[in-house]
Design a protein around this nucleic acid. Structure first.
Lengths: 221, 221
DNA sequence: ATATTAACAAGAATCGATTTTGTAAATAGA
DNA sequence: TCTATTTACAAAATCGATTCTTGTTAATAT
């Protein structure tokens, strides 16, 4: 850091990096985010770090206690259920709108991303333990995002994006260690329903898919 | 300002005040929010003002162009429709959940707020023009909020709150000048459906209510 | 020995100054 | 006269230092 590149600001870059660090599990839930520590790590001033933390706090990824500082958001099964419920509500609606408005380009984009996703390995083994691969994780996100991309309501899409971020946080900090199912078939079925413009069916598959994914996170601990 | 009171921070207070100023129409949509101007107005440092602006920008009430500064969000009929649609989706869902979970205390709170609202005048005349009274506006917000208050999903409630803020912005900057209808009956019907635990009917009334309110804002210009 | 107050330290919040950026006016060259 | 480059200026972004808060420990008193 310490030097600006392009027309973006230091604050933007630090926000992006810090968010990514939190979402990829670099900090434990609830652990303090000391401003002075972060200034050293990023080699920027307090103003920049504070601005980044303030942004993330407003988005719900960071907790702010006045006069007590910032900390990474905590995790609970209860909250995960709230997130899943909110996602079901908003992403289902966005999905219906997307199916109603999507054009040919959108269709081919969906197919393209699905193909990549289906051909990418989900897990990798490190020290005799399985972890979700970042590449698969990115594609998974892209796939779900592409499904709703034709929704003409930018506000709704923004809500979906933020809820996805919150979900993402749990993927790294749940008690789940072993993969118990393969979502590949579900993704295929979901895509088929979407391309067939069958909203009801698509939403139904999506509902099951996301519910199962969430259930898995806190089961088998 | 310039002096802290209680355990709250300057940033919090400035954020609150600035947000209120924007929502009550103190600044025109799109008008620049110069940091140095605001520091003078609030008698605080740039850090505090920037933090407030950053918060509001993340919430969508303020626009931020990197290296170009902040400005009040703009208004368009298109965006209002997006907001209304997002509110319908989220507030309907919250309403159903609230009706399903609300207890006796909640019921009486709904009745209490509705009574206040029904007994409060909506408009006042200033210079031969009618304006919505702040007191009524607050109660209106409280009423709608109380209806969904028993929803056990805090995330969903937060989304509703933020969408309400965005709607609030339009109430002051729409082209509508003359009141064209009275929502009193609709509020009564909505409350009755809610207390009767009739979710479908409540959502239906709510849908009509919010749609008409939004339509009015951009009609009769 | 316990309760209360005072001193201290760590970190948050705030400040005023410095650096960088974008815009528009001024100058130079075709 | 018109375009291209330079210069000047205002505002944004960033910095490092100062001031406040809060929690903890040491000191004093009951």
């Amino acid at each position: 850091m310490a030097k600006r590149n392009g027309s973006s600001t230091l604050s933007e870059n630090v926000t992006k990096k810090l968010k990514s660090d939190i979402l990829t599990g670099q900090y434990k839930p609830g652990s303090p985010l000391t401003v002075s520590e972060l200034t050293k790590g990023f080699d920027v001033s307090v103003a920049v770090v504070r601005e980044a933390l303030t942004r993330l706090a407003t988005q719900g990824l960071v907790l702010q206690n006045p006069n007590y500082g910032f900390s990474v958001k905590t995790a609970s099964e209860e909250e995960l259920n709230s997130i899943v419920e909110a996602r079901l509500i908003n992403e289902s609606a966005a999905l219906r709108l997307s199916i109603a408005h999507g054009d040919l380009t959108w269709e081919s984009n969906v197919i393209a991303v699905h193909h990549k996703l289906s051909q990418t390995a989900e897990y990798e083994e490190v020290d005799h333990k399985l972890f979700v691969r970042e590449e698969w994780s990115d594609l998974h996100r892209q796939f779900h995002y592409e499904l709703i991309a034709a929704c003409p309501n930018p506000l709704l899409l923004d809500i979906c994006r933020r809820l996805w971020d919150l979900s993402e946080f749990y993927r790294h900090w749940s008690f789940q260690q072993q993969p118990t199912r393969d979502g590949r078939d579900e993704h295929k079925a979901l895509m088929d329903a979407v391309l067939g413009r069958d909203s009801d069916r698509a939403v139904e598959i999506f509902r099951t898919h996301i519910q199962l994914t969430a259930d898995n996170l806190f089961d088998n601990r």
